[in-house]
Write a protein that binds this DNA or RNA. Structure first.
Lengths: 296, 296
DNA sequence: AACGATCCATGAATATAATTCACAATGGCT
DNA sequence: AGCCATTGTGAATTATATTCATGGATCGTT
């Protein structure tokens, strides 16, 4: 069997020109190298060099093995460095799962700087999970879960990284635009636009409308935040979104955020990871950066 | 350092699905494999699998190493087979040196069948040598020398493979065409065409003309046998060549071979090799086939 | 031709690494 | 709980690699 160290020998002898020098460069005695070579040649059943006086000349087999060495050794060496980066947590693919639609805008703010700091780490964002975000974490489909609904389980750790208020967004020309805050009944004549997810995962239903047994006049779903807010700005409906998102968009569109209920709806975004991986550098670093994102 | 056997482990575990099965396929005890893996993971500073109950799941490092294994191991395996072919003398490049111009035609007759028999062997023919054919043999520029002039030296072996007669070739319409044999004086009015080599290597001079202190009227040199004989057939000169070559060409051209001197000039072609390589299969086989070539 | 310097090969002794053996620990299944 | 199959562990053993000490060969030098 041709082993890596055999290839190292071929390369070293070729580079150094003599066994003595090659042995030195391999941190071996000349004797050890000589033994190794003899054994290798025996094993292969062919000599690798012809000894001409003190000169060594490669045989055809030797030439062939040398070319193999020059091809394979760099790959071993590169792989060694890559593995070392993995080991030090400086390389990897950070697979992020998202369980809340508007979080995507927030995530973008974290990912940009993160990629700068961790050139060896690729980020991958997934949004659909067969068995929910928690299942994806357990099943190693993702390494990090962004969710407003932490579900504590042994082996998983959730940490809040961002507080925000869920508000209703209306057009500035909307008849509710002047209100300080709204009650559920205020939405009975409105068209509510949401992301296309189950009602149980929509706070405006679970925390606002359903407790009062209220419902909007119409309910439309739209996939993307941009289009959703275009519709709202055009007076075609109202939407429930994080306040910071509404504020951001109101720079470009005629929007107005309004508090839902007198106290408002307070929300948090959590990051969940597998407990065992809490100390992986590129993971914990992401969580730290996520906590530190500042909002004007 | 990542070693070949580490890659073997990755591949085996991945293929077999369990350590026990992998150990079996590697002809090891499960214990040995377990030890190896632990040591490897320690060495790399990263785990390669996460143990989930009895399930093993590759980590990112593990995935990376597995892909390396799938890339490199086949190359090792292929190289092993190639080296084995080298070792058994079934593969190599047979570098043939030629020191006699017309031998080329003869060589072609040997090389054809030889290539059929030795699919792993490439044949390379060289005709120019800085330090002569013998020097090229000693200097490992060639493995086999085709020459009419064996020069016995320690470490080299020459073997005659082909006897032939050197004759003068003239056009059938030539005024000498009717003669049984020629004397040196017969060439005094003729134009002699030879290959462009030193006179000392031309038998017609060393064995025929010079001993009688004779010389042809003119001496032209031409590189290729075909053109040379075209010239001869056109009556533009005469040439000294092996009889079998003349016979072969006289099927297409109006040529006539004539004996030089009453006894004729007998020649032999020798094959020279390095003594040490006499037992290399693809070399000795070539010599055997060279001896066996039959001439109609 | 003799000499010293350098290089490679070899055998025995030693150090290091790999493998086995015996058994403990774990997790899944009935 | 008990059983089976799997993986992990430490000590003992075996195999392998390396060194040490030495000898032989080659080449350049005087």
């Amino acid at each position: 069997m041709i082993e890596r160290n055999h290839l190292e020998i071929l390369r070293a002898v070729n580079q150094q020109g003599s066994l003595t020098a090659a042995a030195e460069s391999l941190h071996l005695t000349q004797s050890a190298l000589s033994h190794s070579i003899r054994k290798l040649e025996q094993q292969l059943g062919t000599s690798l060099w012809v000894r001409e006086g003190r000169q060594l000349r490669l045989t055809q087999s030797g030439e062939y093995l040398l070319s193999l060495a020059n091809r394979l050794l760099p790959q071993f060496e590169h792989a060694g460095m890559v593995i070392d980066q993995y080991a030090r947590g400086q390389r990897g693919t950070l697979r992020i799962g998202m369980e809340c639609h508007p979080c995507y805008q927030w995530l973008l703010k974290v990912v940009g700087p993160y990629l700068q700091n961790w050139p060896g780490v690729d980020v991958d964002v997934k949004q659909k999970f067969q068995f929910g975000g928690i299942g994806a974490l357990f099943g190693y489909d993702i390494d990090l879960l962004v969710t407003p609904d932490p579900l504590h389980r042994p082996g998983l750790v959730f940490e809040p990284v961002f507080d925000y208020e869920q508000v209703l967004v209306v057009a500035q020309s909307h008849h509710l635009a002047g209100r300080e805050w709204l009650e559920p009944v205020d939405l009975e004549k409105e068209t509510l636009i949401t992301y296309p997810v189950e009602i149980e995962r929509l706070d405006i239903y679970t925390k606002f409308l359903l407790p009062e047994n209220t419902a909007p006049a119409r309910h439309k779903t739209i996939e993307t935040t941009d289009i959703m807010l275009q519709m709202v700005a055009a007076g075609r409906g109202v939407a429930a979104l994080p306040r910071w998102l509404a504020v951001e968009y109101s720079e470009k569109m005629a929007l107005k955020p309004i508090r839902l209920s007198k106290e408002g709806i307070a929300k948090q975004i959590f990051l969940g990871v597998r407990e065992r991986e809490l100390n992986v550098d590129y993971l914990s670093s992401f969580m730290a950066m996520a906590r530190d994102v500042r909002w004007r």
